[in-house]
């Protein structure tokens, strides 16, 4: 009878209790509030630097039939990049530390929380942080004139989706890392994504063979989505971007949960 019960599919993933992990992280980081507040300045500096210099050197960029300033072109790409970096720092570096060094999760497993709750809780945390950063980034965009249209507010959910995707993939990736030295490998993946996802210049400038690879980069998907949202250029292609990021996130989360169980509750 037991065997029959064990075969029933588990379609539920995690529970309401995963929110306690979010609560735990807020409690653990509340002493570090300057880090969060100062996060506002990072996009400000980047966008300001582009506004002062590159805007004039590069001039206008043609995207989807309209002509926009370089700042307006590059800002959504930078927003996507910051969501990627934030997701990666949270779910690769910080979770690796909790999983392997400080072993924060072990006592949690002696409570009603399940391994899935822990994985999901870390995703909530990434999304919370991602949403905070995205808000300040979008405010900076508006202040510096890099917002393409009032639709820029839709970049907030778009960025949260990006955070979701990278947080989940990062969570899965971090379970495969053995030591701090392996983090160099993370950089080696992260940098090409950052530089070659049509963040700094339009896809049309890439050689065609490279362009057909770039399209598959999750950061390209996110940058294209956010650029469309910022400019208010809506098209059915956005549905592809959204589903791409969502599916990739879900796959990452499923792998992460499986790996978490192997590490935490072998």
């Amino acid at each position: 009878m037991n065997a029959v019960l064990r075969l029933t599919p588990q379609w539920r993933f995690g529970s309401r209790r995963s929110l306690y992990i979010l609560e735990r992280n807020i409690m653990a980081y509340k002493r570090q509030w300057p880090v969060f507040v100062s996060g506002f300045f990072e996009p400000l500096f980047y966008l300001l630097s582009i506004g002062i210099g590159l805007n004039h050197l590069v001039g206008d960029v043609h995207v989807g039939g309209t002509t926009i300033s370089y700042g307006a072109f590059v800002a959504p790409g930078m927003l996507a990049t910051s969501a990627m970096n934030g997701g990666i720092i949270d779910s690769i570096f910080n979770v690796f530390f909790k999983l392997k060094v400080s072993r924060v999760y072990e006592p949690v497993l002696a409570t009603p929380l399940d391994v899935n709750d822990i994985a999901l809780g870390e995703v909530w945390w990434s999304l919370t942080r991602g949403a905070l950063y995205a808000t300040s980034f979008i405010i900076c965009m508006v202040l510096l004139g890099d917002a393409g249209s009032p639709w820029v507010v839709l970049c907030l959910p778009g960025t949260v989706l990006t955070s979701f995707c990278f947080a989940c993939v990062g969570l899965a990736a971090c379970t495969y890392l053995r030591s701090w030295q392996d983090f160099d490998a993370v950089n080696i993946v992260q940098l090409p994504l950052f530089l070659f996802s049509a963040t700094f210049f339009p896809l049309s400038l890439y050689p065609s063979w490279l362009a057909s690879i770039v399209v598959f980069s999750p950061l390209y998907q996110s940058a294209a989505l956010l650029r469309g949202l910022s400019l208010g250029q809506f098209s059915w292609v956005m549905l592809i971007h959204v589903s791409y990021l969502f599916v990739m996130g879900m796959v990452g989360l499923a792998i992460a949960a499986r790996r978490f169980r192997r590490i935490l509750a072998p």
């Binding site: 735990r24 400080s102 072990e106 929380l113």
Partner: peptide, 27 residues
């Protein structure tokens, strides 16, 4: 209730916060 072999406290949190947070996990 479980007392593991090695202490698994949250070293960055205060003594009281450790208990408060742990209690939350139990709803």
């Amino acid at each position: 209730g479980v007392v593991p072999q090695e202490d698994t406290l949250e070293l960055e949190l205060t003594v009281l916060d450790n208990l408060l947070m742990f209690g939350r996990y139990f709803d």
